[in-house]
Amino acid sequence: MRIRTDFRLFSSISFCVLATLLLAGCGGGNELESNVETTEINNADPNVLELGNTVFCIPSPVQTAILIKDVGASYDKALMNSPGNHSSYSTDFQKALNLGVYGADLGYSTIYEQPQDGLQYLKTVQGLADDIGVSSAFSPEIIKRITDNIGDQDSLLNMVGNCYQALNAFLQENDRDDVCALVLAGGWIESTYFVTSISGTFESQELINRLAEQKTTLENLIKIIEPFYNDPQFTELLDEMYDLSDDFDHVTIEYMYEEPTVDEKNKKSVINSKSKVTIAPELISSIREKIAILREQVIG
């Protein structure tokens, strides 16, 4: 039998088993029986399985920053969220979202080789990670290593990527998928804001295409956040994203399969399939406006 499972299901099952162990260790015989029954119910809970028969992956905001630089757009500090806003975020919801926003800003300033700005954003990210209890991902030792490599862009991007990987792993293992989803959402909103803002003044078909290609990423992001819809903070965020997604529904993506080319010696394949996106100018304006409003709500 072929069964699909969720990558995150592992942590849920482990949590249930470990929770059962801890509870069993604290209780008497009757309580143990009761706890085991609870575990069985949890495992059968459709919500656990619904958390994802599939995993939806959101591309790194750094990739968008790379494209922005490659098309020749100038560095614009005003595009980023000011590090000074950090102290105004009082709830974990705001902090998690802006941890994603500042992560995208860190990537953008690093790609443009702006070490002073990068350091400022790194400290801001570290502060927010501390605030929401995931300081281990940005420990003083790691920050020092990053600071020491500030002139080496590739090393820096690698280390920052690894930090976010550690952060996401920690959040998933500690059953904090809600925070993990918000970090991803913040990063996506900020990097999409870069594209919509820049494409308003800088002519680039590649940027327009990249914006249109966000259609699937937004759909995936919504699927990640939807399980938390009943939390009023998430409701507002998701309603805005649904509205944005309605716009993206008018983007057309035409896909044409072509045989991949394989270079076995170098363990490499070129995926030759092509896609063609079509997005109307008025749709770009509408998305631009909605992203700006959403981003403003996030950064405050």
Binding site: F7, S14, C57, L157, N158, V160, Q165
Partner: peptide
């Protein structure tokens, strides 16, 4: 460069 995410499954 890592995409910053971690995918694990039992």
């Amino acid at each position: 460069i890592s995409d910053g995410q971690s995918y694990k499954a039992l």
